[in-house]
Nucleic acid binder design. Sequence first.
DNA 1: CCAACATACGGAACGGTGTTCCGTTTACCA
DNA 2: TGGTAAACGGAACACCGTTCCGTATGTTGG
Lengths: 183, 183
Amino acid sequence: MVEKRADARRNQATLLSAAAAAFVEAGVNVPVRDIAARAGVGVGTIYRHFPTRADLIVAVYHHQIEACAEAGPALLAAAETPHAALAEWIGLFVDFLVTKHGLAGAFHSDDAAFQKLHSYFLDRLLPVCADLLKAAADAGEIRPDVGALELMRGVGNLCIGDGDDPRYNARRMVGFLIMGLHT
Amino acid sequence: MVEKRADARRNQATLLSAAAAAFVEAGVNVPVRDIAARAGVGVGTIYRHFPTRADLIVAVYHHQIEACAEAGPALLAAAETPHAALAEWIGLFVDFLVTKHGLAGAFHSDDAAFQKLHSYFLDRLLPVCADLLKAAADAGEIRPDVGALELMRGVGNLCIGDGDDPRYNARRMVGFLIMGLHT
DNA sequence: CCAACATACGGAACGGTGTTCCGTTTACCA
DNA sequence: TGGTAAACGGAACACCGTTCCGTATGTTGG
């Protein structure tokens, strides 16, 4: 196992751009064939590089997820109170989700193909969220029995469908939820 | 508009039972062919009686939705405070949603086929919810700017995936959301 | 530079699902 | 009981995810 072939590396990069563009235009559930056509490759090439849709999504949004994860400690240090830091960090997470059409829905799908997406989000963001929650709980600002997983799932769920109907605003609802955590 | 043929009426009833059973066993997204097979009819017969899946879902759950709608005023009269009535009524709504695998997801799908489902829920339940909200707001228990539609969408969203993961409890999250409405 | 080998590619093919359409059957009524 | 309109069944089509294998191509040792 040495280096990958040059055309393979090129195709992988092409696919990432094509997928990113397709996700923006048609949502993360855009047909595989559309992505392949955009990239000018066959569908087999997609599956070779990204066995599941989750792999592709993770690859496309990797940087943004990292940025979100890394922002946690910084917010905690900078904010007035741990609860404010929590609220701001959740805001970042919501911003990320609502700008990706359909991602919030995919995130919570029980489809086995999305298991990897689920795991990646949780591995990377759950500890950050848990730290923020703990800090807020230790400061006595929120009830101490709130789990990071249930909070992130709840927030993710609230983001589903944001933008489909101007009368529904996910940020507002998430704000109410965070308010509801107060002691 | 005359009378429908006897076999048509019979098939419609058979389909309703078959669909109800199929929904329980395999969720509201069970394949059309499975429902047809259960009922012992062809797929054409389903589409003739229920042009969209939403029509079938509405027909199956009509009584439960009515019961939920009618419970609103009763709860308002019986509860200690309007806020408590609101919480209890939302509890009924959540109970309804989480016991129907996949219904919460379908409810908020942007698929055009589910438009009818959306409308029906909203037509029937939105006024009830609005009354409860207004009572609570008039009593000064909650902020006055909460819309019935955004609340119901938020609550519906929080119900998605309940039961898939024992660590996520929709009722708990909805409870936090309702708490967050307090002034 | 050139085989020859491993790697990667393309897209046909398959299975599953929603939806339509039309030849056939059946209920109703005169 | 025969004729008609309503209703039925399921084949057929479209779309999508996924697999698979014959073909093409980059790599490398000679």
